[in-house]
């Protein structure tokens, strides 16, 4: 029986009083992940919003050991801490790196890839809000096509980002690590299950969690969760997990809603032309097709080799 909302403890290891914007998706993710991981956890974060709103000197919201590291070396630092803990005989302590999409998809990639290659015994959580929100909404490798950011402005000629979102989870999957999963702030049951699974495994575990950002995405604060839901229902975001490379899509929308239903809720897509929406819809269809084929191929991975 896997963990559910009602099994979570009342105590917050990431306390109230933090200075995240109202309606912050990352705050929901972090607070609930910490409820699953429990007290015996060490946290690493590079530069990101979470760093600023979770620990601004002299205040700190974390009730577990917490370290701030440089932008590019979250996975490397977590590696060092895990090995030190092992030497001290504290093998059961979970070491977690919480990084944003900029600190994972762009700047932290080399350390992350190296740690995945060595199959270090750590959990790496990438909370994906699809831009560098902490520094004021600059585009990252994880920003989707068409999205407005301050570095991909919507002008007369070029309207928003012209490149497509990088699929980080698939990159890590290609490293042959024990556990890779994507989750969404809009699907609590799914996310908790995956976090619990990751916690009880050994080796390198990677979670990419979609977390809406009212400030950067220009949407009202109350629809944070609704947007995360629509992202999954439209196929913009695929929920899957892969245990030892066996990929399985964990939530398959019965009928995918048009991508426009997801876009129209957010100010960052407001300028998009019909042509652009068509291009994005096309991209989503292709991605979904690719994910489905991948699942088919990778699900039976061991049946043919064992």
């Amino acid at each position: 029986m896997s963990i559910g909302i009602k099994d979570l403890p009342e105590e917050n290891l990431f306390t109230a009083g933090h200075t995240a914007c109202a309606g912050c998706g990352a705050a929901i993710v972090v607070r609930n992940i910490m409820k699953v991981l429990g007290e015996n956890t060490v946290i690493y974060t590079p530069a990101n919003c979470l760093l600023v709103f979770g620990a601004t000197y002299p205040h700190i919201a974390w009730k577990v050991p917490y370290h701030h590291v440089a932008f590019e070396n979250t996975a490397a630092c977590a590696t060092g801490m895990k090995r030190a803990l092992n030497t001290l005989g504290k093998e059961d302590t979970t070491v977690v790196g919480f990084a944003g999409d900029g600190g994972t998809a762009d700047i932290g990639m080399q350390a992350l890839s190296a740690a995945a290659e060595r199959n270090e015994d750590i959990i790496y959580v990438m909370y994906d809000n699809e831009a560098y929100m902490n520094t004021g909404i600059q585009r990252s490798g994880s920003t989707p096509y068409g999205a407005w950011t301050t570095t991909t402005p919507a002008g007369k000629v070029i309207k928003g980002k012209e490149l497509f979102k990088k699929d980080v989870a698939q990159i890590i999957l290609a490293h042959n690590v024990p556990y890779v999963a994507t989750a969404s702030v809009g699907y609590p049951q799914d996310m908790l299950k995956k976090v619990e699974k990751a916690k009880n495994m050994k080796g390198f575990r990677f979670l990419q969690i979609y977390s809406s950002c009212p400030t950067g995405w220009r949407h009202p604060t109350d629809i944070t969760v609704e947007i995360a839901n629509k992202a999954v229902e439209s196929g913009m975001w695929t929920l899957f997990e892969a245990v030892d490379g066996r990929m399985e899509i964990t939530h398959r929308p019965k009928e995918r809603i048009p991508v426009q239903d997801y876009l129209k809720l957010q100010g960052r897509f407001r300028h998009m032309s019909e042509e652009q929406i068509r291009i994005l819809q096309n991209w989503v269809d292709k991605k979904w097709d690719r994910d489905s084929r991948l699942e088919k191929a990778l699900k039976m991975l061991d049946e043919s080799t064992d």
Binding site: T15, A16, G17, H18, T19, A22, G54, A55, Y57, P58, H59, I60, A61, W62, K63, V64, P65, Y66
Partner: peptide, 27 residues
């Protein structure tokens, strides 16, 4: 650093001390 919870003349610091920061006024 601030690994130990302690009381200072300006309030609490250390783990969980953000509870001193009453964010209700933002509402």
């Amino acid at each position: 650093g601030a690994g130990v919870k302690m009381e200072t003349n300006a309030g609490m610091i250390g783990p969980g001390s953000f509870l001193e920061n009453k964010t209700g006024g933002w509402r």
